[in-house]
Nucleic acid binder design. Structure first.
Lengths: 329, 329
DNA sequence: CATGATATGTGTAACGTTTCACATTGAGAG
DNA sequence: CTCTCAATGTGAAACGTTACACATATCATG
């Protein structure tokens, strides 16, 4: 008995089913074919354990059913949620996700694009920071959180509106001495607008609003110094804090609890992102939540849209406020 | 002038450079070729913006330079770090990562394997929970944190040893009334051994060790109840707490700070995993750190090993203790 | 100077699909 | 009973590579 080492091919299936090669192809591409033929082919395929070779198919059709997802990393909770969302949205549509991480390195970003283009994906979803990426215009590209040019659609949350929402919420809850805290990222991006939105509300009300912006190279320590130097007689100089993201908010919360001021009695705290992880059920930090799933789904939608003639160049998704125990409701 | 719509192919490069097709192929496969020929080809390729079509290559060689990574999700910090590590380890070796998430669903896990097999990857790195996955034995498979059978290598951290290390560390730091806290995962896995290791140390010393294990369906609230019911006159009934992972530890830390006991003066706290995110610089929680990068690299190593004749069936990587402010050093 | 031996370029046959022109069949019309 | 048309199966060409057998050139050797 002749030993077959190679995986079964369409030719094998055709022989086994006693039909022509083209017929087998039709069956696997849902092209009308006689009922009995279809059954014969399907049975033969099952017997042989046949699976279509997507590389041969990709070569022929120039469609690969895979898209590349480019992110700085996947350890940042927000990126992680995004990756999760994109991955499953793509999975549902029968696409697979090729993940590349860049560590914010422009060179890595470009290398990624290169590699990905070479590897013939059907499209790219990118969250990158290089201003001028060299990407094949034939390849569908959707940018998250960063606007490039009218040609490439950008989807992001309403960061400015989110900042405003945080401010309005704090105001409504009686905040009179607001503070905005910001850390990181190496490059200007959409998230800068959070602070702008926050400050704009207080400016309009002719109220002061203190902002502290630090690079993440110095870690969180400077925040601790700042906070403790603004405590007098156990009372903090601020009664409402808006943090640029939840990771920072959690840190600040921990610091505050150590330093004395009670949350939310003495000072209220609002983060940004809506990272659910910190509390599987119920929040432990009030926050402006980004619609991560919608971000992911919208990106996938835009990328896979058949009619690519008039895509929106910017899609801005609404955020919402979620109470989580660090504000007085 | 004739408009070329299709991406340039080797044939185009060959014509442009005035050499034979095979020569171009040799250049791109690092097969010895005359210096002048090589230059001519490289220049032609650059002029045309040629990139090899990896689908044609994959079809011919049966190697695709891509491996599938199967994880429950990528939002759990530990999985995220793992994904990050695997993704970059693979990237360094010129492989790309196809990410699939399963949400702990056995059906999704099997579907993943199917899809991935059909899509002809060079191997699979999986962190799955289905006991009997149906996977093509021809396809290299490495399992993380879960032992299947001698045939498929499993790499994991030394969870038992980590538990012991936590216990020994607490003992050395003067702990007399230990507590072990555990939450989650839906399925038995390697991480169960952490508690076993921890308890074994105290058992050997004939000391009591309280354990509290909860499902994650109930969230963290039960822990708060437990803790507050064990506080008497501001003093906690325990002076050393070991949490099954860092996410839980951070929660417990927050609760403790709210409830009164000071950390680490009144009670010391050790987590597990080594999630660095909570503090970019310096820890804010002492922990047993898993060598995530080594886990990732080892998995990739094992998967891509040329000689697949005698692979280890189990690789257990050492963990280490990292002080982080919640223990008295 | 003939002769291998070595090195390096050439052309072609696969790889496993899809696609398309063509062959075959059967039904219905005249 | 022939003819046409639609429906549906068939076989071969192509997709862009790699690998291999072969052709050619270069060079040392007796």
């Amino acid at each position: 008995m002749k030993q077959k080492e190679h995986a079964p091919t369409m030719k094998d299936v055709a022989r086994e089913a006693g039909v022509a090669l083209g017929t087998v192809s039709k069956v696997f591409n849902s092209i009308p074919v006689g009922e009995d033929y279809r059954r014969r082919v399907e049975e033969a395929a099952r017997r042989l354990g046949y699976q279509v070779n997507s590389y041969a198919r990709g070569l022929k059709t120039n469609r690969t059913c895979s898209v590349a997802l480019i992110l700085p990393n996947v350890t940042d909770p927000f990126f992680a949620m995004l990756a999760q969302g994109v991955c499953s949205a793509l999975g549902q549509r029968g696409y697979r996700t090729i993940l590349s991480t860049t560590a914010y390195d422009p060179e890595a970003e470009q290398r990624c694009i290169q590699m990905v283009q070479q590897n013939k994906v059907d499209g790219i979803i990118g969250l990158t920071y290089t201003p001028d990426l060299d990407v094949d215009p034939r390849l569908p590209y959707v940018s998250i959180d960063r606007y490039f040019s009218p040609g490439v659609p950008c989807v992001s949350s309403d960061n400015f509106g989110g900042g405003q929402l945080a401010a309005e919420t704090l105001l409504k809850l009686g905040c009179a001495r607001p503070l905005f805290l910001r850390i990181g990222s190496k490059v200007p991006g959409e998230s800068d607008k959070r602070g702008n939105g926050f400050e704009s509300v207080f400016r309009q009300k002719r109220m002061d609003c203190v902002s502290l912006r630090l690079n993440d190279e110095e870690g969180y320590a400077p925040f601790r110094n700042f906070l403790s130097s603004h405590i007098e007689g156990g009372r903090l100089a601020f009664d409402g804090i808006f943090c640029v993201n939840d990771a920072l908010a959690i840190q600040i919360l921990t610091m505050l609890l150590e330093l004395g001021p009670r949350v939310p009695e003495d000072v209220q705290l609002i983060g940004f992102d809506g990272i659910r992880r910190f509390a599987r059920e119920g929040f432990y930090c009030s926050t402006i939540v980004q619609p991560v799933s919608r971000l992911a789904e919208t990106s996938v939608d835009l990328l896979l849209r058949e009619d690519r003639s008039n895509l929106p160049s910017l899609v801005c998704l609404p955020v919402s406020y979620a109470a989580g125990g660090t504000t007085r409701e």
